[in-house]
Design a protein around this nucleic acid. Structure first.
Lengths: 236, 236
DNA sequence: ACCTGAACACCGTTCAAGT
DNA sequence: ACCTGAACACCGTTCAAGT
């Protein structure tokens, strides 16, 4: 094949394929992770899947971390929004079970989501609307704060909180841009953050991780003890 | 430097350093992960830290996965054994808080432990002795089984069970070697496994993940509702 | 101005050549 | 027989050369 023929072939391939965009990159990445596993997902392999040179991906995602962020949002976006209903427990239950079904469809997603250094927009949206169910069900902001922490904790030693809380920032020193729209877009999350420290209105401030951990632990232990007293047994 | 000089230097370095062994490799790996993070831990970097050629590591660990297994065992081994005490809740509480302190010392460990495809010996030991606290505290084997699952679950969508249960094996077809010593070494784990399926005595058989998930979820939700009714508030 | 092939600085692991 | 340097088949990402 002459050099000219090779150039023509490249041009033909470019003409045939639908032009790349962020959406198509993310969809292909999710599909590739679903079928081959997250370890086999590389920028080079993904580019190959899309019949594209590796560098072409960098026009739509800044780097691999941003690709994983995008994949997280794509997956979390699959979770059903909260349904209507007078009973907050039924609504939460259906929501969490929907999330579980989504994560079972994408076995790599839980680890990827937990590896994000900060919550992505879709995750924030998910947390916010879930907190909203509790609040509208009559739980106080304070209780909702601890309830959300408890839902995200894993007590058997092998646990960190859902997202590492940033270190306590110096008073009066904002950590990064204040992002004034955040409280409007995610009112319940903002409320949770506000409930976590006395009188300070900055979002994303320090949570008392130790307290949250012990809250969830004690709540579960009390529940276990109650079942024990009752002589509880599963219907098997 | 002549070739001969270089050879002499290599020989001197080899004479000076204490000979490598698995223990020293694992300790160095844990220290390196502690100080530089898990992403910076590579076989090559670890070898460099030990003043050794990369291939030398492969005499003490088969590959990187086995290195991570060894690091897991080293860290889980730091958790205090269960103390004495008449109240199982106090004993469990102290144990879990000890585990938490260990994982806070090694921030990379939780993710590494959860990424192991199977439980390492120290993890099995930890799970077994923890289950033992419940059993000796008077909880039934059935209840202890579900309690252990609940302690390892993370409900806020972002959750898989602690270790993926192997797919249901064909009846009468053992998945891998039966490992007859397992039930003796880890009696409570064996008991848990036995409690998870009706009459079948094979260890490590199928758990009803869906049931375990909903058990933990409902237990927490009931706890939340009780707090809500009480108008609970944290002392802040 | 735009695109991209080659290059860079890494990986984990294999293997054959050298002592 | 043993050890290990070089090599292999990958990475994510940079950058300059080419059109």
């Amino acid at each position: 094949m002459t050099r000219q023929e090779a150039t023509q072939r490249t041009a033909q391939r470019a003409a045939q394929r639908t032009p790349l965009n962020r959406e198509r990159v993310l969809r292909a990445a999710v599909a590739l992770a679903d079928t081959t596993g997250i370890d086999a997902l590389s920028m080079r392999r993904l580019a190959q899947e899309l019949d594209v040179v590796p560098m072409a991906l960098y026009k739509h995602v800044a780097n691999k971390e941003e690709l994983l962020d995008g994949m997280t949002d794509a997956v979390v976006g699959e979770i059903d929004p909260p349904g209507p209903g007078p009973d907050w427990r039924h609504v939460v239950r259906a929501r969490i079970l929907s999330a579980r079904r989504v994560l079972l469809r994408h076995p790599w997603a839980a680890r990827v989501i937990e590896s994000r250094t900060g919550p992505t927009p879709a995750v924030l949206e998910y947390l916010d609307s879930t907190a909203g169910i509790f609040r509208e069900g009559g739980l106080s902001a304070d209780l909702t704060h601890h309830v959300m922490h408890a839902m995200g904790s894993r007590l058997l030693g092998f646990s960190q909180e859902l997202f590492a809380t940033p270190g306590p920032s110096e008073p009066g020193e904002a950590s990064g841009p204040p992002d004034p729209g955040l409280a409007e877009r995610y009112p319940y999350v903002a409320e949770l953050a506000a409930a976590s420290h006395d009188g300070d209105s900055a979002v994303g401030g320090g949570c008392d991780d130790q307290f949250e951990f012990e809250f969830a632990l004690d709540l579960l232990l009390d529940g276990f003890e109650r079942l024990r007293e009752r002589g509880w047994t599963s219907a098997r």
